[in-house]
Structure formats: structure tokens, C-alpha cells
Simulated scan of single mutants.
Amino acid sequence: MAVPYSPDVYLLAHRFPIKKYHAYLPWEADYAAHPWHGYNRDLCVDLPKEMPPAIYFDSWVIWGVHDPKKFMSCVVDLLRTHYTQIPQGSSVYIRNDRLSLPLLKQ
């Protein structure tokens, strides 16, 4: 998964995004709070149900205004509690249960 918006990551990894989420931008977070016609699309609800083995999280502040830490704080919380940043300082997070014990000790 790549959030909030990094379509090149899917192309380079030869992977498809998780269902419904090739991106998650501020207006999509707003839609999640006000869905139309029964089409629910809320990353904060769906992501904990199906946590991908890896997440590419770009902390890019969209248009210099929309900070992902604010409009998708649920993702930041999930990364903090269930993922490890590999390598430190990168944009790649690996789900903790996918890491080997020797790697965790480093």
C-alpha cells in the first residue's frame, strides 16, 4: 500500500493497490465521513481489517496545506503500533509480524 499518493510505487513493485485505495487524499478522508449511496470508503475502518505486509507512507504535505498526519492520523497511529520503518528514516514500513526476530534486535 502507498499513501497518501504514490502510484509509481505500485508500478515499480509490480503490485496492485489494496481494493479501493490507490491513493488517500484529504477529500477522500472527507468522503469517508460523508459517504454517498452506501459506498463506504474509509481507510481508517478498512486498513486495520486487512493490514498489508508493507506500507509506503510519504509524509508529503499536500499543496503545503494538508498534512497526512492530520487527515489520516489513523494510518500514522497504525504505523506506530504495528509497523517498523525499514530502514530508519525511509518511507517504507514493514508489518511487525513479518519481521524476523534477529532484525528486530538490531
Rank of each mutant, 00 (worst) to 15 (best):
Y93K: 05
H14D: 15
A13D: 11
I94G: 05
V61A: 06
A54M: 14
V75Q: 01
A13K: 09
R15D: 13
K70Y: 03
Y39T: 07
S6C: 08
D42R: 08
L12Y: 12
F57S: 04
E50S: 13
I55K: 01
T84R: 12
L43Q: 00
L43A: 01
W36S: 14
L25G: 07
S6D: 09
H37S: 14
Y21T: 03
D58S: 15
K49C: 01
S91L: 10
H82K: 15
L47P: 02
T81F: 08
Y83H: 03
S100W: 10
P4C: 04
Y56N: 12
G64F: 01
L47E: 00
A29M: 01
F71D: 08
I86C: 12
A54V: 15
R80E: 13
V76R: 03
Y21V: 02
L99K: 11
Q85T: 06
K69H: 12
Q106H: 10
R80K: 15
E28Q: 15
P87A: 08
F16H: 09
H66W: 13
S6E: 07
V75P: 01
D77P: 05
A2N: 04
L79R: 05
D67R: 02
G89N: 08
G38P: 11
L47K: 01
T84N: 04
D97S: 11
D77M: 07
L78P: 00
V92E: 05
W27C: 01
K69P: 00
R41H: 12
I86D: 06
H37N: 15
S73M: 05
A29P: 07
T84C: 06
Y5D: 02
W27I: 07
S73C: 03
D58V: 04
R15F: 05
Y24C: 02
S90E: 00
W60L: 03
R98E: 15
F57C: 00
A54W: 06
H82R: 15
W60F: 11
T81C: 06
V76P: 01
S59L: 01
P102G: 09
D8H: 10
P7V: 03
I62S: 03
L47I: 08
D77H: 11
G89S: 07
Q85C: 12
Y93A: 05
H22R: 05
F16L: 14
I18W: 06
H82T: 08
L43R: 08
K105N: 12
M51V: 11
L101A: 14
W27R: 10
D46F: 09
S100N: 10
I18S: 08
Y31I: 06
I86R: 11
W60G: 06
V92Q: 00
C44T: 09
M1R: 00
V3W: 07
F57Y: 15
